[in-house]
């Protein structure tokens, strides 16, 4: 294992390796034979709880960063109008949400109607509509697929797509049950085989990445 001895962030690296080993060992030694949590298990539980809290804080930092980026865009007059709209919306939503939070705790009664209104009538329709537009784009993309690359793999891809779509229609299944059976077989055998291979590949890759982090080879936290 290639360990870089000239660590740029020795404290951070040591922390990452240390907590990683604790959490990893907790899979094996987190509980004693009676099921009670060991010291290692308690430490691991603390770290996992901390991970939840710190992930929440990291999300807030990320959102603040988003706001600062668009603020910089406004200052640079770089699509400032859209950035201004985004920032205003963010601030309004955040302000209303904080107001709801304060009101909830001051009145000792849950009251997130205003925040829910924003979610139900702004965020939900827009995001669902974005997904709807995707259907049009995918139709066009599927029709163009063979034009972009015409080879056996592309034909297989398009053929599978068509077979799965056709086989999903009950009218077709009623008229030609074989198509429905083919659809089920595709999902049950070759798709499953390919998906299993992909899953194993992803898992191996994830483990390799995790090991590199826990050995200090990768230090994505520096910077």
């Amino acid at each position: 294992m290639n360990l870089n001895l000239k660590l740029k962030s020795p404290v951070s690296t040591a922390l990452a390796i240390g907590v990683g080993i604790v959490v990893l060992l907790g899979y094996f030694f987190g509980n004693d034979p009676s099921g009670e949590a060991t010291t290692l298990g308690l430490l691991r539980a603390f770290l996992l709880q901390g991970a939840i809290v710190w992930a929440g804080v990291a999300m807030l930092v990320g959102i603040f960063n988003l706001a600062s980026v668009h603020l910089a865009k406004i200052r640079a007059n770089e699509e400032a109008s859209y950035s201004f709209i985004l920032l205003i919306t963010l601030i309004i939503t955040l302000g209303i949400g904080l107001y709801d939070i304060v009101e909830t705790f001051t009145q000792q009664e849950i009251n997130f109607q205003r925040t829910s209104w924003i979610f139900n009538y702004i965020q939900l329709p827009i995001e669902t509509s974005l997904m709807a537009v995707l259907a049009i784009s995918l139709t066009y993309a599927a029709a163009r697929l063979l034009a972009r690359r015409l080879n056996l793999i592309s034909v297989v891809f398009v053929g599978v797509v068509l077979m799965l779509l056709i086989g999903a229609m009950p009218q077709v299944a009623a008229q030609a049950p074989i198509l429905a059976e083919i659809r089920q077989w595709i999902l049950r055998v070759p798709t499953l085989a390919g998906a299993r291979g992909i899953l194993l590949g992803i898992a191996l890759g994830t483990i390799a990445t995790g090991v590199r982090i826990l050995t200090g080879s990768d230090r994505p936290y520096t910077g």
Partner: peptide, 14 residues
């Protein structure tokens, strides 16, 4: 409709 579009589009493009 989508299947028809994919088929027709695919044939046209091929």
């Amino acid at each position: 409709t989508a299947i028809a579009a994919i088929l027709i589009g695919g044939i046209v493009n091929v």
